[in-house]
Design a protein around this nucleic acid. Structure first.
Lengths: 230, 230
DNA sequence: CATCGATCTTACATTTTTATGACATCCCCT
DNA sequence: AGGGGATGTCATAAAAATGTAAGATCGATG
């Protein structure tokens, strides 16, 4: 079920939006200030955030900035008043994906939400299948093979590989990996990531000492590369 | 399209500046006095204001003060004559973001405008990508190339280059670099900066002994220059 | 409640990066 | 032109980050 986080301090609008979302069979969670929203985002990992820009505690723009700084790619739909035009522009720069202007029509809001979800699930979502070198991975069946021969991989290794692959070519920090792959409630040491990377490498790389697909970027993190630069 | 408001009472300079901005694909609007500028600001909401300090009707300083009093955060670039140094200082106090001294070079003006827009639009002001000469740097991938050939750069070098580039055309002191690139809690000797600059130069400059992009400003610090003055 | 596999932690080895100081060179001022 | 401070260059020591392996812990399962 698709989960949507609605962040809005006006109880009336909050009610309207969430009722309509529930009617459309979304799983709705709500927050009335930025701090709470940030925590809910970490703990419940919604598929989309509907965000009012004017909020107590932590403003919408700040929340937006913070999520993107974490490397969080969750689609964000801003709700702004007509007078907050400059905030809207700034919001888009800070990584929001779309906006509606208050007062908005409910059908319009729903249409935009559908559009954003469609965009995110296909374009920036996690891969379902992955091929590189002699290795082939199916993330739905949790099956991996090298030259047709099955590779024993653990759940965490699948998740880790999948997330790294979804960010192909860009460096991901250990902290971000802990957030995204491990989740909110368990906080292992960052060195744990290194160990999982090591064991993943031993399974998918031809030579684990000279990794080709999962590269270390010293001082920053790891990155998955498919296409080798000539 | 990025909109720039140019406020200048000298028709010659006004013409020069706006023509160059238009050539760079900015949407340009102009005013020749402070009153008009203030109204245009309200009605057209430009992304940046280029402001001459000496103006009829309402002076540049007064305009500056009034905008900030309105809570307007639009970036303001002042143009001042060399003799108006006290005004320049006052202008920065009143909320202007940067200045150029008349007579100024057009590339310098353009560089500062770019830098200001970048700083105001993206949260951190740090560039995500950089191209100069034969070198291309991607700060998300942590990859640098010269004519397509990878350059091995350390994290500090990436960070240093990135920060210098974010302040394009303006001199940055060693102390500021230590603060911003190294962090406020660790304090190596300022000479350490020189060493990192040197090694960065050896990697990105065609001739490290005659640096073009990272220039030394004797007795002050370093500055990154993208556009070479003709 | 014992067992097994997965996961996490810790410790140690190795690699890479960073900081420092000595010396050479340059620049600006007189 | 000469002197003093600032900067460039280089080698090396120190620190930090990463790789690796072994053991501890957790949790599901029979």
């Amino acid at each position: 079920m698709t989960r949507v986080l609605v962040v809005e301090d006006d109880p009336g609008i909050l009610r309207t939006v969430s009722d309509n979302l529930k009617f459309e069979k979304y799983d709705v969670i709500t927050a009335m200030d930025g701090e709470t929203a940030y925590k809910l985002q970490q703990s419940h990992r919604p598929d989309l955030i509907v965000l009012d820009l004017m909020l107590p505690r932590m403003g919408g723009l700040e929340l937006c900035r913070r999520l993107r700084a974490d490397g969080d790619q969750v689609p964000i739909l801003m709700m702004t008043a007509r007078s907050e035009e400059s905030d809207r522009v700034l919001g888009l720069d800070l990584g929001a994906d779309d906006y509606v202007t208050k007062p908005f029509s409910v059908p319009e809001l729903m249409a935009r939400i559908r559009a954003l979800l469609r965009r995110s699930s296909s374009a920036s979502g996690l891969p379902v299948m992955l091929k590189f070198g002699e290795v082939e991975v199916d993330f739905r069946k949790y099956v991996a093979r090298r030259r047709g021969k099955p590779i024993e991989m653990t759940r965490k290794e699948f998740d880790l590989l999948r997330f790294l692959a979804s960010r192909e070519d860009t460096v991901v920090t250990r902290d971000e990996l802990l957030n995204k792959v491990w989740g909110f409630d368990s906080f292992p040491v960052t060195r744990t990531v290194d160990n999982h990377v090591a064991s993943l490498r031993s399974k998918i790389e031809a030579d684990a000492a000279r990794p080709v697909y999962i590269q270390t970027v010293h001082g920053v993190g790891y990155k998955f590369v498919l296409q080798q630069p000539e």
